[in-house]
Design a protein around this nucleic acid. Sequence first.
DNA 1: TAGGCCATCTGGTCCT
DNA 2: AGGACCAGATGGCCTA
Length: 195
Amino acid sequence: MRSLEMTAPWQEEEEDVEVEEMELRKHNNDGRDDLTESSSDEATGRKRRKHGGSASSGSASSGTTIRRRKTCISARERNLRRLESNERERMRMHSLNDAFEQLREVIPHIKMERKLSKIETLTLAKNYIMALTNVICEMRGEEKHYTFVQDVESDSTAEIDSGVVDDASSSEQNNNSMYQQNLESYPETALVNTR
DNA sequence: TAGGCCATCTGGTCCT
DNA sequence: AGGACCAGATGGCCTA
């Protein structure tokens, strides 16, 4: 694979610099990554990765040499900024996951042994909003905004009357039967608070 | 063992 | 200029 042969810009420096970076990274892991190394995901019990993926991703690697020469900072400085950037990205993803967790808590759904995946959470949230919108329309004596269609043939669960594009429809088809059952009964289950 | 899901790293792009 | 956001890549864990 191509990415395996490539190296990150800050790894293209002289060897002595590279040694410094490795030590820096090791120290960084000692101090900060004990969170990710030893702790496990509370909900799933999964161990978090200590190190991530490739040194460089395919799409992001073009033109980096020129860019590197423009910035007059040392390899150590680049590495430091990269590590700081990684930390921020981790924190950002953690906050995103917290938001997903909060969303899971407020979405009525059939209790499953495993927690809802992200795509399941988003899809159920969307359907929940649609169901509630219909309830509001009903209370106002208006026509329902959305129509839930149980189409066995197409495996599609919810169709939208108002022309809103169903972004998750393709992803829905990849989910397991338990999830499908959950979705298919959603208009009913959405109105029953299971908390 | 394959496939799904996920955490993390990484570099590019956008925004302030 | 620096941080936030994004998407691609990678590898670990889990389940059928």
